[in-house]
Simulated scan of single mutants.
Amino acid sequence: MRGAALALAASLAATIVPAAAQQAPVQTQATTRPDARRAVLIFTKTAAFRHDSIPDAVRALSDLAEKRGWRAVASEDSALFTPDSLARFDVIVFASATGDLLSAEQRQAFESWLAAGHGFVALHGAGDGSHPDWYSRMIGTGPYTGHPGGADQFQTGNLILLDRTHPATRHLPRRWRWTEEYYAYASPPRADAHILARLDETGMRFEPKQVMGDRHALIWWRCEGRGRIFYSALGHRGETWRDPAHVRMLDGALAWAGRKAGKGC
């Protein structure tokens, strides 16, 4: 299976969907338009919690890539994280990928690829508490303290847009009404993160350890050397990936990570 995955990464001509036996496989097709100028790897491996919305995320992201004339490959095989394989991609997306996913050699290949000026987009579960410390530092999260549970798991609140000049957020209102499983952290993102949107906690129900006040960032970007990193904590529910405003935000994030729009790094 790993040999097949590596051969596909070289050609970008078919779908890679190896998955652990306990995981529901994701099915998608790589785009093959001849005018493709970018390639995106949609990585959905889970070594911790697996979101039911992952297939929805793959479909949405693949559609966005196709509309841009990019090639997209969806995979759950960490064997792709070698220098030769990663060189085929301009952008990598962790679509609710969870857990400790990469070996030491794969991590080194990934970090070198990113430092060379490529783009990384991490979405929802890709920023929870299941990830190793090096990864959390890279995307910029503080220590994860969870999310509301039970009847309070999904709440409707207002996201305050702090920067509406970024390609991912320029279409959004200053106050964006949104329903989500809201992640919380013990501290705000690292100091070099550029926060695009935060949660207005007014009237919302959080455990004391999850209260962050006006520091409750949910969408941001940062640079890792020349590499562009974008994180959004949104996306637990399947319908999220069909919401026009959210999908447009993802399109802007891909464009920015792929250096087709915006500034930074």
Rank of each mutant, 00 (worst) to 15 (best):
E66R: 15
G258M: 09
K67Q: 15
Q155K: 03
F81V: 14
M212R: 05
D243F: 01
L161W: 00
T82E: 12
G258F: 09
R137M: 07
G119P: 04
A168C: 05
A115I: 08
P244H: 04
F81N: 11
L123S: 10
L64W: 13
I92L: 13
V211N: 08
A7P: 09
T145K: 10
A4M: 09
I92G: 02
R215N: 13
P173T: 10
A253E: 01
E224C: 02
R222M: 06
K260V: 12
L162Q: 14
R190A: 14
W256D: 03
H51R: 07
L114V: 08
S232V: 02
G258T: 09
I229R: 00
M138G: 05
L159T: 03
S232N: 00
A30G: 15
S75G: 02
G69F: 02
V247W: 04
A217K: 06
L61F: 01
D214I: 09
W178I: 05
S78E: 14
L123C: 10
A261R: 10
S232M: 01
F206L: 02
S112E: 15
S112K: 15
T169L: 04
E180V: 10
D192F: 09
T44V: 15
V121C: 01
W256V: 04
W134E: 13
L8P: 00
S103M: 14
T31F: 00
V211H: 12
R59S: 12
L172Y: 02
T179L: 10
V247K: 05
V17L: 09
S78F: 03
D214W: 07
H194F: 07
P148K: 05
G119M: 01
G3D: 11
G252W: 02
D84W: 12
E224K: 12
S187A: 14
D133R: 14
R248H: 06
L6K: 07
A122H: 01
A97M: 01
I92M: 07
E181H: 00
R2F: 08
P25S: 09
P132L: 11
C265H: 06
L114T: 03
Q29T: 15
D52A: 15
H118V: 05
S75E: 00
V58P: 04
W70C: 04
P244G: 04
K45F: 04
I160W: 02
N158H: 07
S11Q: 13
Y185H: 09
P55I: 02
G69D: 01
A261S: 13
G142H: 04
M204P: 08
V247Y: 06
R259C: 13
I195V: 15
